[in-house]
Computed example of a mutant assay.
Amino acid sequence: MNRCLRIVATVTLLVLAGSALTACIAEPSRVCVPTLAVDPDNPRPGRIVAVSTTNACPLPGGAELTVRIHPAGETIPLAQARVTPDPDGSFSVSITVPPTIRPGQAIASISNYWDIATCPEGASCAAAEVEFTVAR
Rank of each mutant, 00 (worst) to 15 (best):
L21F: 14
E121S: 10
Q105S: 15
S124K: 12
Q80E: 15
D88R: 08
R47L: 09
E131H: 09
A63S: 13
D39I: 07
A50D: 13
P77H: 14
V134M: 12
P58N: 13
A26Y: 01
A26E: 02
V38E: 00
G62L: 06
P28V: 00
V8N: 08
V130Y: 10
A50N: 10
R6Q: 09
P58C: 15
L78T: 00
N55A: 13
C24L: 14
S111L: 04
V93Q: 05
F91S: 00
A123I: 06
M1C: 11
T84W: 00
V31E: 04
A9C: 13
V8E: 05
R6E: 06
E27R: 15
R82V: 08
D88S: 01
V67D: 01
A23D: 10
V51R: 00
E129C: 03
V31H: 11
A63M: 06
L59N: 04
N2M: 13
A123Q: 03
N112M: 07
T118A: 12
G62H: 02
V33S: 01
I101F: 07
T66A: 14
T35P: 04
A63D: 07
P71R: 04
V15L: 14
A17P: 03
A72Q: 11
G104T: 11
L59I: 07
T53P: 02
C4D: 11
A135T: 02
P58M: 14
P60Y: 00
T84D: 03
I7N: 00
P99F: 04
E27V: 10
P58D: 10
I69E: 00
I7A: 08
G122A: 02
V38I: 00
